[in-house]
Nucleic acid binder design. Structure first.
Length: 276
DNA sequence: CACCATGTTCCTTG
DNA sequence: CCAAGGAACATGGT
Protein backbone atom coordinates (compact mmCIF):
# COMPACT_ATOMS: atom_id res chain seq x y z
CA UNK A 1 0.00 0.00 0.00
CA UNK A 2 2.71 2.40 1.01
CA UNK A 3 4.69 1.59 -2.11
CA UNK A 4 1.67 2.15 -4.32
CA UNK A 5 1.07 5.45 -2.60
CA UNK A 6 4.66 6.68 -2.72
CA UNK A 7 5.70 5.38 -6.12
CA UNK A 8 3.99 8.05 -8.24
CA UNK A 9 5.05 10.73 -5.77
CA UNK A 10 8.73 9.82 -5.85
CA UNK A 11 9.24 8.38 -9.31
CA UNK A 12 11.81 10.20 -11.48
CA UNK A 13 12.51 12.79 -8.81
CA UNK A 14 16.02 14.08 -8.22
CA UNK A 15 17.31 14.22 -4.69
CA UNK A 16 18.78 17.63 -3.91
CA UNK A 17 19.60 17.22 -0.23
CA UNK A 18 20.10 14.47 2.32
CA UNK A 19 19.83 15.00 6.03
CA UNK A 20 20.57 12.09 8.35
CA UNK A 21 19.32 12.94 11.83
CA UNK A 22 19.64 9.45 13.30
CA UNK A 23 22.70 7.48 12.28
CA UNK A 24 21.32 4.28 13.69
CA UNK A 25 18.73 4.14 10.90
CA UNK A 26 21.44 3.62 8.27
CA UNK A 27 23.06 0.65 9.97
CA UNK A 28 25.43 -0.83 9.03
CA UNK A 29 26.51 1.77 6.46
CA UNK A 30 28.07 5.15 7.11
CA UNK A 31 26.31 8.46 6.68
CA UNK A 32 28.95 9.72 4.23
CA UNK A 33 28.51 6.76 1.89
CA UNK A 34 24.78 7.16 2.11
CA UNK A 35 24.88 10.88 1.31
CA UNK A 36 27.39 10.48 -1.50
CA UNK A 37 25.20 7.93 -3.24
CA UNK A 38 22.00 9.90 -2.89
CA UNK A 39 22.89 13.53 -3.55
CA UNK A 40 21.96 14.35 -7.11
CA UNK A 41 20.60 10.82 -7.68
CA UNK A 42 17.29 10.12 -9.32
CA UNK A 43 14.65 7.76 -7.97
CA UNK A 44 13.83 5.36 -10.78
CA UNK A 45 11.03 3.47 -9.08
CA UNK A 46 9.85 1.77 -5.91
CA UNK A 47 9.09 -1.87 -5.22
CA UNK A 48 8.37 -4.05 -2.22
CA UNK A 49 9.92 -7.28 -1.00
CA UNK A 50 8.48 -8.72 2.20
CA UNK A 51 8.41 -5.87 4.68
CA UNK A 52 11.11 -3.99 2.79
CA UNK A 53 10.61 -1.09 0.43
CA UNK A 54 13.08 -1.16 -2.44
CA UNK A 55 14.02 2.23 -3.83
CA UNK A 56 15.72 1.90 -7.19
CA UNK A 57 18.21 4.76 -7.24
CA UNK A 58 20.20 6.03 -10.20
CA UNK A 59 23.18 7.85 -8.69
CA UNK A 60 24.50 10.87 -10.58
CA UNK A 61 28.02 9.58 -11.24
CA UNK A 62 27.41 5.86 -11.63
CA UNK A 63 26.06 3.75 -14.42
CA UNK A 64 24.41 1.02 -12.48
CA UNK A 65 21.34 1.73 -10.39
CA UNK A 66 21.57 0.93 -6.70
CA UNK A 67 18.87 -0.45 -4.47
CA UNK A 68 18.14 1.35 -1.24
CA UNK A 69 16.22 -0.73 1.31
CA UNK A 70 13.71 0.77 3.67
CA UNK A 71 12.10 -0.97 6.62
CA UNK A 72 9.58 0.68 8.91
CA UNK A 73 10.29 -1.42 11.97
CA UNK A 74 7.37 -0.98 14.36
CA UNK A 75 6.85 2.77 14.31
CA UNK A 76 8.34 3.95 11.02
CA UNK A 77 6.47 6.24 8.60
CA UNK A 78 7.37 7.58 5.20
CA UNK A 79 5.64 10.54 3.62
CA UNK A 80 6.15 13.84 1.85
CA UNK A 81 5.83 17.28 3.37
CA UNK A 82 6.12 20.75 1.87
CA UNK A 83 9.60 22.16 2.27
CA UNK A 84 8.50 24.81 4.74
CA UNK A 85 6.58 22.43 7.03
CA UNK A 86 8.16 21.81 10.44
CA UNK A 87 9.98 18.50 10.85
CA UNK A 88 8.44 15.95 13.21
CA UNK A 89 10.26 15.24 16.45
CA UNK A 90 11.51 11.82 15.33
CA UNK A 91 12.43 12.54 11.73
CA UNK A 92 15.34 10.13 11.14
CA UNK A 93 16.17 10.87 7.49
CA UNK A 94 15.00 13.74 5.30
CA UNK A 95 15.48 13.81 1.53
CA UNK A 96 14.87 17.10 -0.24
CA UNK A 97 13.36 17.41 -3.74
CA UNK A 98 12.53 20.84 -5.09
CA UNK A 99 9.72 22.17 -2.97
CA UNK A 100 9.01 18.94 -1.12
CA UNK A 101 10.74 16.76 1.41
CA UNK A 102 10.56 13.02 1.88
CA UNK A 103 10.41 12.21 5.60
CA UNK A 104 11.38 8.93 7.20
CA UNK A 105 10.06 9.33 10.71
CA UNK A 106 10.51 6.64 13.31
CA UNK A 107 9.73 7.09 16.98
CA UNK A 108 11.56 4.05 18.20
CA UNK A 109 14.29 4.01 15.55
CA UNK A 110 13.92 0.29 14.89
CA UNK A 111 13.49 0.97 11.18
CA UNK A 112 16.23 1.14 8.54
CA UNK A 113 17.19 2.92 5.37
CA UNK A 114 20.29 1.37 3.90
CA UNK A 115 22.17 0.06 0.86
CA UNK A 116 23.10 -3.15 2.66
CA UNK A 117 21.35 -5.88 0.71
CA UNK A 118 22.07 -8.65 3.21
CA UNK A 119 18.69 -8.08 4.82
CA UNK A 120 16.71 -9.42 1.88
CA UNK A 121 19.05 -12.25 0.92
CA UNK A 122 17.31 -14.86 3.03
CA UNK A 123 13.71 -13.83 2.55
CA UNK A 124 11.22 -16.53 1.68
CA UNK A 125 8.76 -16.31 -1.21
CA UNK A 126 6.21 -13.54 -1.66
CA UNK A 127 3.01 -15.13 -0.35
CA UNK A 128 0.81 -13.77 -3.14
CA UNK A 129 3.13 -14.82 -5.92
CA UNK A 130 3.46 -18.16 -7.72
CA UNK A 131 6.76 -18.61 -5.87
CA UNK A 132 4.80 -19.43 -2.75
CA UNK A 133 4.78 -23.14 -3.37
CA UNK A 134 2.71 -25.31 -1.08
CA UNK A 135 5.09 -28.26 -1.36
CA UNK A 136 8.07 -26.21 -0.19
CA UNK A 137 5.94 -24.56 2.48
CA UNK A 138 4.83 -27.93 3.88
CA UNK A 139 8.36 -29.30 3.73
CA UNK A 140 9.72 -26.34 5.69
CA UNK A 141 6.99 -26.67 8.31
CA UNK A 142 7.71 -30.38 8.64
CA UNK A 143 11.30 -29.59 9.60
CA UNK A 144 10.40 -27.34 12.52
CA UNK A 145 9.23 -28.11 16.01
CA UNK A 146 8.44 -24.48 16.74
CA UNK A 147 4.85 -23.49 17.45
CA UNK A 148 3.26 -22.72 14.10
CA UNK A 149 2.52 -19.12 15.09
CA UNK A 150 6.19 -18.51 15.87
CA UNK A 151 7.20 -20.22 12.63
CA UNK A 152 4.97 -17.93 10.57
CA UNK A 153 7.01 -14.97 11.80
CA UNK A 154 10.14 -16.53 10.27
CA UNK A 155 10.74 -14.33 7.22
CA UNK A 156 12.71 -17.07 5.49
CA UNK A 157 9.63 -19.29 5.43
CA UNK A 158 7.32 -16.71 3.84
CA UNK A 159 8.15 -13.03 3.45
CA UNK A 160 6.14 -10.29 5.03
CA UNK A 161 3.97 -11.89 7.69
CA UNK A 162 4.05 -10.01 10.98
CA UNK A 163 2.44 -10.56 14.34
CA UNK A 164 -1.00 -9.32 13.31
CA UNK A 165 -1.40 -11.38 10.16
CA UNK A 166 0.18 -14.48 11.70
CA UNK A 167 -2.68 -14.46 14.23
CA UNK A 168 -5.26 -13.66 11.58
CA UNK A 169 -4.10 -16.36 9.16
CA UNK A 170 -4.21 -19.01 11.89
CA UNK A 171 -7.75 -18.02 12.78
CA UNK A 172 -8.86 -18.34 9.17
CA UNK A 173 -7.11 -21.71 8.95
CA UNK A 174 -8.75 -22.82 12.24
CA UNK A 175 -5.37 -23.87 13.62
CA UNK A 176 -4.30 -23.41 17.23
CA UNK A 177 -1.17 -21.22 17.45
CA UNK A 178 0.74 -23.53 19.77
CA UNK A 179 0.72 -26.58 17.52
CA UNK A 180 4.27 -27.58 16.56
CA UNK A 181 4.79 -26.82 12.88
CA UNK A 182 5.81 -30.39 12.12
CA UNK A 183 2.58 -31.78 13.55
CA UNK A 184 0.31 -30.16 10.98
CA UNK A 185 -1.23 -32.68 8.62
CA UNK A 186 -1.52 -32.07 4.88
CA UNK A 187 -5.04 -30.76 5.19
CA UNK A 188 -4.00 -28.16 7.74
CA UNK A 189 -0.95 -27.16 5.77
CA UNK A 190 -3.24 -26.55 2.79
CA UNK A 191 -5.67 -24.54 4.90
CA UNK A 192 -2.84 -22.46 6.31
CA UNK A 193 -1.32 -21.86 2.88
CA UNK A 194 -4.67 -20.68 1.57
CA UNK A 195 -5.39 -18.63 4.69
CA UNK A 196 -2.15 -16.71 4.38
CA UNK A 197 -3.16 -15.71 0.88
CA UNK A 198 -6.75 -14.79 1.72
CA UNK A 199 -5.69 -12.91 4.85
CA UNK A 200 -3.17 -10.79 2.98
CA UNK A 201 -5.47 -10.26 0.03
CA UNK A 202 -8.21 -9.07 2.38
CA UNK A 203 -5.75 -6.83 4.21
CA UNK A 204 -4.79 -5.16 0.94
CA UNK A 205 -8.47 -4.69 0.12
CA UNK A 206 -9.14 -3.08 3.47
CA UNK A 207 -6.26 -0.71 3.27
CA UNK A 208 -3.06 0.11 4.95
CA UNK A 209 -2.20 -0.21 8.62
CA UNK A 210 -0.09 2.95 8.34
CA UNK A 211 -1.20 6.44 7.42
CA UNK A 212 -0.56 6.97 3.74
CA UNK A 213 -1.30 10.62 3.56
CA UNK A 214 0.22 11.81 6.77
CA UNK A 215 -0.01 15.47 6.00
CA UNK A 216 -3.78 15.29 5.72
CA UNK A 217 -4.53 12.43 8.12
CA UNK A 218 -2.77 13.85 11.15
CA UNK A 219 -5.51 12.51 13.37
CA UNK A 220 -4.69 9.25 15.03
CA UNK A 221 -7.76 7.40 16.23
CA UNK A 222 -6.90 3.77 16.69
CA UNK A 223 -4.24 1.23 15.95
CA UNK A 224 -5.11 1.43 12.28
CA UNK A 225 -5.30 3.95 9.55
CA UNK A 226 -6.84 3.71 6.14
CA UNK A 227 -5.88 4.81 2.71
CA UNK A 228 -8.19 7.36 1.17
CA UNK A 229 -8.96 5.02 -1.69
CA UNK A 230 -10.00 2.02 0.36
CA UNK A 231 -13.54 0.90 -0.33
CA UNK A 232 -13.72 -0.35 3.22
CA UNK A 233 -12.29 2.69 4.94
CA UNK A 234 -14.00 3.31 8.24
CA UNK A 235 -14.98 -0.32 8.59
CA UNK A 236 -12.07 -1.11 10.85
CA UNK A 237 -13.99 -2.70 13.67
CA UNK A 238 -14.85 -5.53 11.27
CA UNK A 239 -11.36 -5.87 10.02
CA UNK A 240 -9.53 -8.18 12.39
CA UNK A 241 -10.85 -11.51 13.62
CA UNK A 242 -8.64 -11.98 16.67
CA UNK A 243 -5.70 -9.58 16.87
CA UNK A 244 -5.87 -7.26 19.91
CA UNK A 245 -9.32 -8.62 20.79
CA UNK A 246 -8.50 -10.33 24.10
CA UNK A 247 -11.68 -10.96 26.13
CA UNK A 248 -13.96 -9.91 23.30
CA UNK A 249 -16.35 -12.41 21.70
CA UNK A 250 -15.16 -14.36 18.69
CA UNK A 251 -16.88 -12.98 15.59
CA UNK A 252 -17.80 -16.55 14.59
CA UNK A 253 -18.76 -18.36 17.81
CA UNK A 254 -18.88 -15.68 20.56
CA UNK A 255 -16.26 -17.50 22.68
CA UNK A 256 -13.88 -15.06 24.37
CA UNK A 257 -10.66 -14.42 22.47
CA UNK A 258 -7.59 -15.56 24.41
CA UNK A 259 -4.20 -13.88 24.57
CA UNK A 260 -1.06 -15.93 25.17
CA UNK A 261 2.64 -15.09 24.87
CA UNK A 262 4.84 -17.00 22.44
CA UNK A 263 8.46 -16.11 21.77
CA UNK A 264 7.86 -12.92 23.76
CA UNK A 265 5.08 -11.77 21.41
CA UNK A 266 1.34 -11.65 22.00
CA UNK A 267 -0.77 -14.22 20.21
CA UNK A 268 -4.55 -13.86 20.03
CA UNK A 269 -6.81 -16.76 19.11
CA UNK A 270 -10.22 -18.29 19.59
CA UNK A 271 -9.84 -21.45 21.70
CA UNK A 272 -13.01 -22.90 20.23
CA UNK A 273 -12.54 -22.15 16.53
CA UNK A 274 -8.83 -22.95 16.64
CA UNK A 275 -8.21 -26.34 18.16
CA UNK A 276 -5.08 -28.39 18.52
C1' DC B 1 5.78 2.80 38.75
C1' DA B 2 3.90 -1.15 35.83
C1' DC B 3 3.11 -3.25 31.40
C1' DC B 4 2.27 -3.07 26.56
C1' DA B 5 3.40 -2.10 21.50
C1' DT B 6 2.84 -3.40 13.76
C1' DG B 7 10.24 -6.00 14.21
C1' DT B 8 14.88 -7.62 13.78
C1' DT B 9 19.36 -8.91 15.49
C1' DC B 10 22.57 -10.46 18.73
C1' DC B 11 23.96 -13.51 22.45
C1' DT B 12 23.64 -17.62 25.05
C1' DT B 13 22.45 -22.28 25.75
C1' DG B 14 21.71 -26.90 24.40
C1' DC C 1 27.21 -26.20 12.45
C1' DC C 2 21.95 -25.51 13.95
C1' DA C 3 17.67 -24.46 16.68
C1' DA C 4 15.44 -22.04 20.20
C1' DG C 5 14.75 -18.60 23.76
C1' DG C 6 15.51 -14.27 25.60
C1' DA C 7 17.40 -9.70 25.84
C1' DA C 8 18.37 -5.57 23.48
C1' DC C 9 17.35 -1.70 20.71
C1' DA C 10 14.19 3.26 22.07
C1' DT C 11 10.10 5.78 22.85
C1' DG C 12 5.48 6.54 24.01
C1' DG C 13 0.65 5.18 25.41
C1' DT C 14 -2.34 3.51 28.98
Amino acid sequence: MLVRHLRPLLRHKRISSVEVRRLRILRPILANTFRRTLIGARIVTLRRRGKYLLFEIQPRAQKRPRIMLGHLGMTGRMYLLPKNAPLPKHAAVVLGFGDERFIFEDTRYFGRLTFDAAAIQDLGPEPLSADFNIGDFGARLARSVQPVKVKLLDQSLVAGIGNIYACEALFRARISPGVPANRLNAERVLRLWRSIRTTLTAAIQFGSTVPLDYARTGKHGDLFYYGQTSEHAGNHEERLWVYDREGQPCRKCRTKITRIVQAARSTFYCPRCQRA
